[in-house]
């Protein structure tokens, strides 16, 4: 096995802007989860009715 390159390439530190939102991590996690739940509800509504047929019919010819 060739020797694994150990050197890490780090770009110089830059100032990071202050956090725009000061939400505790757990609350933030719950908020994200709630948003994702809402999104999944929406997706259930808009996802093509017959997924199998939709996927089967999606055939593309001659592309670059």
């Amino acid at each position: 096995m060739p020797e694994r390159e150990q050197k890490r390439h780090r770009a110089p530190e830059r100032e990071t802007p202050e956090e725009a939102e000061e939400v505790a991590p757990s609350a933030k996690g719950e908020k994200l989860k709630a948003e994702m739940d809402d999104l999944l509800d929406e997706i259930d509504e808009v996802l093509e009715d017959n997924a199998e047929e939709f996927v089967r019919n999606y055939v593309q010819k001659g592309g670059q």
Partner: peptide
């Protein structure tokens, strides 16, 4: 991942392929 988890779908599910297209 979230959709798969909610509906307990295997990776081979056509619904995931549909999600990818859509």
């Amino acid at each position: 991942d979230a959709y798969r988890e909610r509906h307990g779908l295997p990776w081979t599910s056509k619904r995931l392929a549909a999600l990818d297209l859509q």
